[in-house]
Design a protein around this nucleic acid. Structure first.
Length: 564
RNA sequence: UGGGGAGUGGCCAAGCGGCAAGGCAACGGUCUUUGGAACCGUGUACCGUAGGUUCGAAUCCUACCUCCCCAGCCA
C-alpha cells in the first residue's frame, strides 16, 4: 500500500498531529512542504527509506510538495556516483520530487551573502585559532568554553578577511568563519560554531569556483528556508542543533521552517550506519553496495525486494521519538505479503535427487497444466513437461522417516504437483552408501493429482523433468549478522566479530522448469515450497543465477528443529 | 556531577484523566494438489521506580532510576 494511495485524513503519528494542528491554525497559509536532504557520500539504506516515506507520504497526504535536495557541503567526501545512486533509489521507492531536485551547492552564493550579513551585524568573525585550539577553547560538557582572542575583530577586518578566504589567499586550515554566540552555553552547538572552513577541493558540482565551504549547520536550515520547507523533519541527533538553526534564521530574518525530530530506524541482525556499511564494502565482507545481503536500497532491490514491500514496512513501523530496534522479521513479513499476491510460481529443484518412473514409457513427454499463481487466477496457467526421469528435492526423501515426515520414503506414495501420484519402490545407492537415485512407479489414473478411488496422500512434492530443466545457480542469503544487535561484542572486538559466516550459500547445480528461460534480471518467482527468488544481473542465457529473496515460512523446518 | 531526548507485553506502537488498540514474533488449531497462503484461537501488560493530586492516572505533579545524543574546520 504505497503512501501515495492513502490520502485518508487523520493523524497516524505525532508528526501528522503537529502538521494537522498547524493546518488548523492556518500556519503557512495551509501549505505543506517537505524534503529529503541526503548528503551524497554513501548509498541509501532502509533507514533512509523510512525518512523518504515519511516526508513524501506527508506531502501526498496533505496535498503538499516534496523536494529532493542534496546537502553537498563537503566536497572531500562526496561524489557524483552517490548522487546518481540516490536519485535512482528515491525514484525507485516511488517518491516524486517533480521538478524540484536541488542542491545546497545551488545556494553557495546566497549562503555567502548570509555570512556577510552576520559579519555586518557583528554576529560572526574570522578566527585564526587552529583546529586543536578551537577544540581546547570550546570547553567540555561540564565546563564553559573560552572566547577566542580573535573574537572581537572589527566588522571591517572580518569582512576583509572573509573576502580573502573566499579569494583563496589562505591555505586550508588557516582560519574559519565563526558565529559569535555564547562560549558559555550549555549547548555546545552554541559555543561559536564554525560557519565556513577553507577547503581547496574541487566540488563535484561547483568545480573550483569555491575554496571555502559552509558547514552543514550553516547550510541546512537556510536551505530549507530558501525552499520554503514548512516542516523540516530530521532525526533525533539534530535536536540540540535546533536552537542554532533558529538563531541563524532569526538573525538572518528569513522564513522559518519548523524542525521536527524523530527516531532513526534500527533493524535487528544488520547495521544501518554509513560508516559501518562502508566498512563492510571496503573490507570485502560483502561484494559491494548492492550486495543482496546489504540493507542498502540497491542491495534490497537486487535481492528482490519491491518498493511496495518497503513502503508497507515503513508504514507499519510507525514514527516516534524513542530509540528502537525493529525486528527484521517484520520487513520479511511485509515482503512475503507483497510477493505472495503478485509473483508467479514455478518449480525448481535446488539439491536434485534423480527419480526414474519405471512404468512410464521411455521417450514420452506430457505437458501438465500448472497454475501460475493460486492467489490470482488472472495470472493464468502454463505447461510443464513431465517425463520418465525427474529430479526432486533431496530433502523430500528420507530412507528412514521420522514420525511427522510426510514426504517420500521407501514404499510410500506422494503426489507430484500437477502430475501423478508416485510410489517409491527402490532406493539406489553409491559405493559410499549415499542415495543417488529413486526408482518409483506412477499411477496413470492419478493424472492431475487426484486418485479416482479416493485414496489420499499426505504430501505434494515439486519436481522438474530432467530432460527439460534449465541449469541454474542459486544464491541463498541469510542475515548478515548472527546477533540481533551486531554491536553486542566482547571487549576489544567490533561488530564484524558478529558477521554471519554463512550469510551467503551458493548452490551451483539447481534445475528449474523451462518456462523461466530468457527471464530478465530482476524477474521474480516463487520456487514452490522453497522461497521467493529473483534473477540476478550475473545471470546469463547459459547459466541462470537466482537470488533467494526470502524463504517461504516453513512449518516442517520448525518441527524438524524441535526434534533436535 | 552541563544541555537535549526517551522509557507501554519478546520486538515495534496506539493511548492526550474514566477503568491498556493494532502489527510482528511465539504457541495451538482449521483448511489445503505449495507442511505456502488463508482462517480461528492463545498473553492476569501491576504502562521505568517511589510518592502525591483526584471519586478515578499509562495519561497531571514531585523525586529518583535506566538508556540514547552532544566536546568534527563531518553530516
Amino acid at each position: 500500500m504505497p503512501p501515495a494511495e492513502i490520502p485518508a485524513p487523520g493523524a497516524t503519528n505525532f508528526i501528522h498531529e503537529i502538521i494537522e494542528a498547524d493546518l488548523r491554525a492556518g500556519k503557512n497559509g495551509g501549505r505543506v512542504h517537505t524534503r529529503f536532504p541526503p548528503e551524497p557520500n554513501g548509498y541509501l539504506h532502509i533507514g533512509h527509506a523510512k525518512s523518504i516515506c515519511l516526508n513524501y507520504g506527508i506531502a501526498k497526504k496533505y496535498n503538499g510538495k516534496f523536494n529532493l535536495r542534496f546537502d553537498d557541503t563537503n566536497p572531500t567526501k562526496e561524489d557524483q556516483e552517490y548522487i546518481d545512486s540516490i536519485i535512482e533509489d528515491v525514484r525507485w521507492l516511488g517518491a516524486d520530487w517533480e521538478d524540484r531536485l536541488f542542491y545546497a551547492s545551488d545556494y553557495f552564493e546566497q549562503l555567502y551573502e548570509f555570512a556577510i550579513k552576520l559579519i555586518k551585524k557583528g554576529k560572526a568573525y574570522v578566527d585564526h585559532l587552529s583546529a586543536e585550539e578551537i577544540r581546547e577553547y570550546r570547553g567540555t560538557l561540564t565546563e564553559p568554553g573560552r572566547e577566542s582572542p580573535y573574537r572581537n575583530r572589527s566588522v571591517e577586518e572580518n569582512l576583509a578577511l572573509f573576502e580573502q578566504m573566499r579569494r583563496g589567499d589562505f591555505p586550508d586550515g588557516t582560519c574559519v568563519l565563526r558565529a559569535k554566540i555564547d562560549m558559555a552555553s550549555p549547548n555546545l552547538n552554541m559555543r561559536d560554531p564554525v560557519l565556513y572552513r577553507i577547503l581547496h577541493a574541487e566540488h563535484h558540482r561547483t568545480g573550483n569556483t569555491w575554496c571555502i565551504y559552509p558547514m552543514y549547520d550553516f547550510a541546512h536550515g537556510q536551505s530549507d528556508s530558501i525552499e520554503g520547507i514548512t516542516h523540516s523533519i530530521c532525526t533525533l541527533e539534530f535536536e540540540d542543533h535546533r536552537p542554532l538553526y533558529d538563531w541563524f534564521l532569526d538573525e538572518l530574518e528569513i522564513y522559518h521552517p519548523q524542525q521536527i525530530e524523530f527516531a532513526r530506524l534500527n533493524l535487528t541482525n544488520t547495521v544501518l550506519s554509513k560508516r559501518k556499511l562502508l566498512r563492510l564494502v571496503r573490507d570485502g565482507h560483502v561484494r559491494g553496495w548492492d550486495d543482496p545481503r546489504m540493507p542498502t536500497i540497491s542491495g534490497l532491490r537486487r535481492r528482490g525486494y519491491t518498493p511496495e514491500a518497503i513502503r508497507d514496512f515503513c508504514e507499519r513501523i510507525g514514527v516516534s521519538k524513542s530509540n528502537s530496534i525493529v525486528d527484521i522479521a517484520l520487513l520479511e513479513h511485509c515482503l512475503r505479503q507483497d510477493l505472495n499476491l503478485r509473483v508467479p510460481r514455478v518449480m525448481a529443484v535446488l539439491r536434485p535427487l534423480r527419480v526414474v518412473i519405471e512404468n512410464y514409457p521411455e521417450g514420452q513427454v506430457e505437458y501438465m497444466e500448472a497454475v501460475n499463481n493460486p492467489e490470482d487466477p488472472a495470472m493464468g496457467t502454463r505447461q510443464v513437461p513431465f517425463s520418465r526421469v525427474l529430479y526432486i528435492e533431496q530433502d523430500d526423501f528420507m530412507e528412514d522417516p521420522p514420525a511427522k515426515f510426510y514426504r517420500l520414503a521407501p514404499g510410500r506414495e506422494v503426489r507430484l504437483r500437477y502430475a501423478y501420484f508416485i510410489k517409491c519402490v527402490d532406493v539406489v545407492k553409491d559405493a559410499r552408501g549415499q542415495v543417488v537415485e529413486l526408482r518409483c512407479t506412477y499411477d496413470p489414473a492419478t493424472r492431475g493429482g487426484d486418485a479416482p478411488d479416493g485414496r489420499k496422500v499426505k504430501a505434494t512434492l515439486h519436481w522438474v523433468s530432467a530432460a527439460h530443466a534449465l541449469q541454474a545457480e542459486a544464491r541463498l542469503y541469510d542475515h548478515l549478522f548472527l546477533k540481533a544487535n551486531p554491536d553486542d561484542v566482547e571487549e576489544g572486538q567490533d561488530f564484524t566479530a558478529n558477521l554471519n559466516p554463512n550469510s551467503l550459500e551458493i548452490v551451483p547445480n539447481c534445475w528449474v522448469e523451462p518456462s523461466v528461460a530468457g527471464a530478465a534480471p530482476g524477474t521474480r518467482y516463487q520456487f514452490e515450497r522453497i522461497a521467493y527468488f529473483c534473477v540476478d544481473p550475473d545471470s546469463t542465457p547459459e547459466k541462470l543465477v537466482f537470488n533467494r529473496t526470502v524463504s517461504l515460512r516453513d512449518k516442517w523446518a520448525k518441527i524438524a528443529a524441535k526434534g533436535e
